[in-house]
């Protein structure tokens, strides 16, 4: 599965990083807590969150996330989108709420993260 598939499944708007949508996504992680995200950091993980602050972008960069999906149609401020773009992190915004968003991706075959075995 790549980010293009994610975008289609979630009917998502691409906020930045159109050019990176061919990136492969292996696992998904839905959470609004930075340290939780970092605890499960592995490669090729898609972050799903409802938090739109700059910390999410820092966290995504540190954990080498493939991209970030904002649920409930949330959109971060312009400076945050610019920061993500600068750090090669694609941002998507889906109208689905957290539970449905994760459910849709899971039933489409995206796996969850496992502790210590990313």
């Amino acid at each position: 599965m790549n980010l293009r598939d994610i975008q289609r499944i979630l009917k998502a708007e691409v906020l930045c990083g159109e050019q990176w949508l061919s990136r492969e996504v292996k696992t998904g992680f839905g959470c609004d807590l930075m340290s939780e995200m970092l605890a499960f950091a592995g490669s090729h993980t898609l972050l799903i969150t409802s938090l739109t602050n700059e910390h999410v972008i820092h966290t995504a960069e540190i954990m080498d996330a493939v991209g970030v999906v904002y649920v409930s149609g949330k959109q971060p401020a312009k400076e945050i989108i610019e920061k993500a773009n600068h750090n090669n992190i694609p941002l998507l915004s889906t109208p689905f709420l957290m539970f449905e968003c994760c459910g849709l991706l899971f039933t489409s075959g995206l796996k969850g993260c496992k502790r210590g075995n990313p």
Binding site: D32, M34, E36, L51, H55
Partner: peptide, 15 residues
């Protein structure tokens, strides 16, 4: 509310 306070920071550092 900013996304901190999971109580996972020090355990992460240890890990």
């Amino acid at each position: 509310e900013m996304g901190f306070g999971a109580g996972m920071g020090l355990p992460n550092i240890k890990q």
